[in-house]
Design a protein around this nucleic acid. Sequence first.
DNA 1: CTTCGTGCAAAAACTTTGCAAATTG
DNA 2: CAATTTGCAAAGTTTTTGCACGAAG
Lengths: 155, 155
Amino acid sequence: MNFIQNLEYDHLLAEFKKVLKESLLKFTKQREVILQTLYNFPEHFSPEELHVLIKSSYPDINIGIATIYRTLNLLENSTLATSLSFGKAGKKYELANKPHHDHLICKNCGKIIEFEDKKIEKKQEDIATKNGFILTGHVMQLYGICAHCQKNKKG
Amino acid sequence: MNFIQNLEYDHLLAEFKKVLKESLLKFTKQREVILQTLYNFPEHFSPEELHVLIKSSYPDINIGIATIYRTLNLLENSTLATSLSFGKAGKKYELANKPHHDHLICKNCGKIIEFEDKKIEKKQEDIATKNGFILTGHVMQLYGICAHCQKNKKG
DNA sequence: CTTCGTGCAAAAACTTTGCAAATTG
DNA sequence: CAATTTGCAAAGTTTTTGCACGAAG
């Protein structure tokens, strides 16, 4: 399964293997394929979507939905991945060690766009400092209506 | 159910009634109590949590979990409420038109400091516009350790 | 009065678990 | 080889739906 020569992915994979080794768990094709798919695609996937995508991307690998769920839970418990959901869309997973980013979310269709803004992050630091806090993290979600849903609005 | 004299809530309620009337739906005790509970508590609730809370807060009103789900979907479809979830916790609902949520939160003692920053809000607008979104709201939480807890840190 | 809403229980959708066979270290 | 993982199917959960009765307009 090593089609990809990519330092970032290699690092992620090494991290995953380390987590597995620490818990005396095993590295399997199914686990690798799930990690790889989460890495290769920018979207956030539901377990079901991941399952369908993997089955079509790797027709030679047999993988059941239970394995998807078990692996996603494993990734989430080891903080390699996180899940989130907005609006009517179900829970979606993404890798956690992507460069830090925030989310712009369509309240109508649930579409998620990731973004990052250094100036905002700097201001957040300033606000924390001004209030005597040591900042350790943040969550920022912007809600709105995406271009597509604006157009499709009847009226 | 009109215990509360509160312009903000009155406005919300009027909005809800307007939405109902437009779709020829009816205003019921159950629907009012759900709106009121979402308004009165700062937390985000899962359907199940809301159900338990409402049953204990309003023991005289009989309300089934199906009604909670139906009403939350109604509120979400009419954009009066939104749902979201992070990590292992299930989906939680909150009113969409609450006043700002910008909070600085101490991870150690739970202390919450509210803040507002015009420059960040301006940047958020810019980000939404650049991505074709009409911005309707946002959530921003900064996590850290407050001055008091920094001092009291054992070690 | 007519229509919609409700609670209840059944159905559907989503997620986890038990088990025997297969794979990993 | 011993121990974990897998797919499958069954068991749990969560959410939605159908229906007859009650409430709202």
